[in-house]
Simulated assay, not measured.
Amino acid sequence: MQTAFNIIAAALVLLFILNRQLKPRAIREDRPYRQMLILGAIGFYQLGSYDEAASVSTTAWVLLAVSFVVGVAFALVRGTQVHVWREGGVLMRQGNAVTIALWVVSIAVHIGIDVLIGGTGSAAEGLGTTSILAYLAAVLAVQQFVTLRRAEALADRGVTQPMVNA
């Protein structure tokens, strides 16, 4: 039952994220990582609770770490593809088809690795779905970091129009 809840919660969060990625949105420069911290707190709490309830093999944890590393790599690329600009002094960003495609592939990889994790033993089954909120928090934070660094570079050059790969 917990796994079904995790899948539903993760799907709703992912739909929310993808929807927000496609809309022009202001980046709160005063608290750019607030949502990621909230997601991360919930996600890592879930992971800790899962580990206490089940004896998970080292192999399963290594595979989960690989999933996070791959997710971070995709987030680094996504961060370079987001359109960023300033509008009336407000930092704006908007995803596009490339960022959505990268999201879909990264989530598919995470799910694929979850299947591999499930094959390492019954105690590990569901570890990947339990980790999805922590995964989303980590990759969103990395994407936000890259986007903010790009925005700083744009500001130094006085760019105000939407830019990709700047």
Rank of each mutant, 00 (worst) to 15 (best):
A141W: 01
L127I: 09
I38E: 01
W85F: 02
F5Y: 12
A124G: 09
A153Y: 05
L12C: 14
V105H: 06
A54L: 07
V84Y: 00
Y45E: 00
R20G: 15
I132P: 00
G79Q: 10
G158Q: 06
W85H: 09
L102H: 02
A138N: 00
L140R: 09
A73C: 13
F68H: 08
A97Q: 08
T59Q: 11
Q2S: 13
L14T: 15
Q144C: 12
G121W: 04
L22R: 03
A73N: 02
T58R: 09
A11D: 06
Q143E: 15
A151S: 13
Q35W: 09
L14S: 10
A73E: 00
A97F: 04
S49G: 12
H110S: 12
L14I: 14
F44R: 04
A73Y: 00
E125F: 09
Q21M: 12
F74R: 07
R78P: 08
V104F: 10
A75N: 01
L116Q: 10
S106F: 02
N96L: 06
Q2K: 12
L148S: 07
Q94W: 06
E29I: 08
G126K: 08
E52D: 11
I100R: 04
G158D: 08
L102W: 03
W61Q: 11
D114Y: 03
G121A: 09
A153D: 12
I111T: 06
A54S: 10
G88A: 05
G121M: 05
S49K: 11
R25Y: 00
T120M: 10
G118Q: 02
V69A: 15
I111R: 07
P32G: 08
T99N: 03
I117N: 04
P24H: 07
A166R: 10
I38H: 04
Q21C: 11
L127Q: 07
D156K: 15
R25T: 14
V146L: 09
E152D: 14
L47Y: 04
E152P: 02
L39V: 11
A141Q: 06
R93A: 13
Q143R: 14
R149Q: 14
L22V: 08
Q35P: 06
M163I: 07
K23Q: 14
V62D: 04
L136M: 14
F74N: 08
L148D: 08
A65T: 15
Y50N: 01
S57N: 08
D156V: 13
